[in-house]
């Protein structure tokens, strides 16, 4: 068989196994023009969607085939620039990367297309991302170092040093995690998962000499301690950056470098070790008391109600773990940090 025959054969094989399918999908699309509209509205579009298309293709078809005024951001079409992030049925997604086949598997044939944050909409899918960039900027998202202006050699990183970034450098600042974060939604001061991933990326860089970044993410109300641990950011990230893992690593850095101050959040984390060392299991009341100290007072009304319903076990009533000596030995030998 010559090369041409071989290629024809392979093409036929591929065509026979890879079927392009088509199905009808109803789209409900968020429309809003801040210059003209008092309120946003939703426009319906029904299209035959092929299994080869991505969400961006659908947005292009709306613009090109139905309404030229439909507006959205797009640029690279390769999941690099981060411009085209939007929400499909409430799920943040990078439009150019997300296949319609996956979306149909996830949500069936009824889809709502919205901007990442409807309350920040300027025109259709285009939002004012100012809060995202402000918070990104606040973590000093660059290497701070004294630069030798006439270096004699390159400043190389070892593979181990590069691996320490733990893929945080893959972030494309698309905002998918930021606008999926429930804390960002309700607390405008919270810096958000993307900013924390960026903070980790530069803190973990051995070349960096910045001294303020960890302090900046250590603030109550805006910093890492206000994370609710919902994993929305990890779920949604189109580049698998896993921002919540970076938030945990920032917590670890704060403790390891002695920058974690004694407050309700840090004591809450440390309190688990104390309780485990004493009982194996958690002493729930003891943990709240240790974490809150005098602040415990505000919990008293609910605690009394819980007590009356048999929901609070006093310290002497706690059933400790069996083989507690093993746990105590392991806490002693495996601890890697002091508070």
């Amino acid at each position: 068989m010559n090369l041409e025959q071989e290629l024809t054969k392979r093409k036929k094989e591929l065509m026979s196994t890879h079927k392009i399918t088509t199905q009808k999908v109803n789209f409900k699309v968020f429309r809003f023009n801040a210059d003209e509209d008092y309120l946003p509205y939703y426009e319906d579009y029904t299209m035959e969607v092929t299994s080869e298309e991505v969400v961006l293709d659908i947005m292009n078809r709306i613009k090109w085939d139905y309404d030229g005024s439909f507006s959205y951001r797009r640029s690279c079409r390769h999941g690099i620039c981060g411009a085209c992030a939007i929400k499909v049925n409430g799920r943040s997604t990078l439009a150019c990367k997300e296949s319609m086949t996956t979306m149909i598997e996830y949500f069936g044939n009824e889809m709502t297309i919205e901007p990442l944050s409807t309350k920040r909409a300027i025109k259709d899918m285009i939002i004012d991302k100012g809060d995202f960039w402000k918070k990104h900027e606040a973590v000093t998202p660059y290497v701070v170092d004294e630069i030798d202006e006439t270096p004699e050699s390159e400043n190389l990183l070892s593979p181990a040093e590069a691996n320490a970034l733990n893929d945080a450098d893959l972030c494309i600042q698309c905002g998918a995690c930021h606008y999926a974060c429930p804390v960002v939604e309700v607390n405008e001061d919270f810096m958000g998962p993307a900013a924390f991933a960026a903070a980790y990326r530069f803190e973990a860089d051995v070349r960096d000499g910045d001294v303020s970044r960890l302090t900046d993410v250590n603030q109550m109300g805006s910093g890492v301690w206000d994370c609710v641990k919902c994993f929305e950011c990890a779920e949604v990230c189109p580049k698998d950056v896993n921002p919540i893992e970076k938030i945990t690593q920032l917590h670890n850095m704060l403790f390891q470098q002695g920058k974690a101050e004694s407050n309700v959040a840090t004591r809450h984390a440390v309190g688990f070790e104390k309780s485990i060392k004493k009982n194996g299991v958690l002493d729930e009341g003891g943990l709240v008391l240790y974490s809150e100290m005098a602040g415990i007072v505000k919990h008293v009304p609910v605690a009394l109600k819980m007590f009356s319903k048999g929901k609070i076990v006093p310290p002497w009533g706690i059933v400790k773990s069996e083989n507690l000596d093993e746990i105590q030995k392991l806490v002693k030998s495996s601890s890697t940090v002091k508070f």
């Binding site: 670890n252 984390a269 688990f272 485990i276 495996s334």
Partner: peptide, 26 residues
């Protein structure tokens, strides 16, 4: 599993990730 300890409830690992792993592995 009456020998089991607390899992750390997603907070112990913020303080000491390795200890959290050891206790859960136990």
């Amino acid at each position: 599993l009456t020998e089991a300890s607390c899992c750390g409830a997603s907070h112990l690992q913020d303080y000491d990730d390795f200890l959290s792993l050891v206790l859960n592995a136990r």
